[in-house]
């Protein structure tokens, strides 16, 4: 790969090993960033479109967090802390906005570019490879999710819902959530045959949003359901962000980080391979 102009920006020993395990070239950060550049060029004209995704969690915060919060008062988290209901819900909405932004972009938008716009057919005729495309589009989608959640964090700050300096780390946490969902979204999209298949995306995202300890703690569920919820990715995203924003940090957040990182990596590998299969016939 080092002879490849314009080459990747230095590949570490561990990724060299990875390159041998995977029968495809590793993405180069520089080449992948060109897809982000392309998307910025497109959205320069339509940046209002992007902003629309920011309002959804805000409306939830106002109606459920503040409205229902007035009735509920406080809630006791699974780690035993008593939180104001709004403080409890806000980080969950922040994590969900990272998921929503990433999923929206990595499913609908990528499907359009893949099947209709034939964008990647053109891109792959240049030095970019399928894994560069997968990495680039995943980066863009996760940036979109992270943009929503970061803006949302600013609103939370203004409303006095942030309780700790740890909250700064909630921003990279949302990048990680975006990464996990964007990569898996891309991989899932590569298997989609028609727009009807996107019903499945809704079917996965909506229940996750409603049931992953977004609006109430895990203790509400019977044991079996608890386990099921703990298997879902958004649960880990929400718990991670909630721990950071409220400052109730313990070692369990490492488990959440690991879960999301592994999920994203698998998604990226599968997505890269699928793109190569679909496009390099």
């Amino acid at each position: 790969m080092s002879t490849t102009p314009p080459g990747p920006a230095g590949v570490g020993a561990s990724s060299m090993l990875l390159a041998r395990v995977l029968p495809m070239p590793l993405p180069s950060a520089r080449r992948a960033s060109l897809l982000v550049e392309r998307n910025l060029l497109v959205y320069r004209r339509g940046w209002l479109l992007i902003l629309s995704g920011f309002f959804e969690p805000l409306f939830y915060l106002l109606s459920i967090g503040i409205g229902i919060g007035a009735l509920v008062g406080t809630v006791v988290t699974d780690s035993g802390a008593a939180l104001d209901y709004t403080v409890f819900v806000a980080p969950a909405l922040m994590a969900s906005s990272a998921m929503n932004g990433a999923v929206y972009d990595s499913t609908f938008n990528i499907f359009f570019k893949l099947k209709y716009a034939k964008l990647y057919d053109a891109v792959l005729a240049t030095p970019l490879s399928a894994s560069d495309v997968a990495a680039g589009e995943t980066s863009w989608a996760l940036m979109r999710g992270a943009l929503y959640s970061t803006t949302f964090l600013a609103v939370m700050l203004a409303l006095g819902l942030v309780q700790s300096w740890w909250a700064i780390l909630a921003v990279p946490a949302c990048f990680l959530i975006g990464f996990a969902f964007a990569a898996v979204g891309l991989a899932a999209t590569s298997f989609m045959k028609s727009w009807q298949n996107f019903e499945f995306v809704q079917l996965a995202v909506l229940p996750m949003f409603l049931f992953s300890t977004t609006f109430y703690p895990l203790s509400v569920y019977p044991d079996a359901l608890r386990l099921l919820v703990q298997c879902t990715p958004l649960y880990h995203g929400i718990e991670l962000v909630r721990a950071l924003v409220t400052g109730l940090v313990d070692v369990s957040i490492l488990g959440h980080v690991l879960y999301l990182a592994v999920m994203g990596s698998i998604g990226l590998i599968v997505g890269s391979k699928r793109l190569a299969t679909l496009l390099l016939k």
Binding site: T3, T4, P5, P6, P25, R38, L41, V42, A117, K118, L119, D121, A122, A125, T126, P127, L128, S129
Partner: peptide
């Protein structure tokens, strides 16, 4: 592949221009 494609110009049979640009 990447090193080869860097030095090629390609006009495919069907245009695949970037319609959003």
């Amino acid at each position: 592949g990447p090193a080869i494609r860097a030095r090629l110009g390609v006009v495919p049979q069907t245009d695949n221009l970037d319609q959003e640009l």
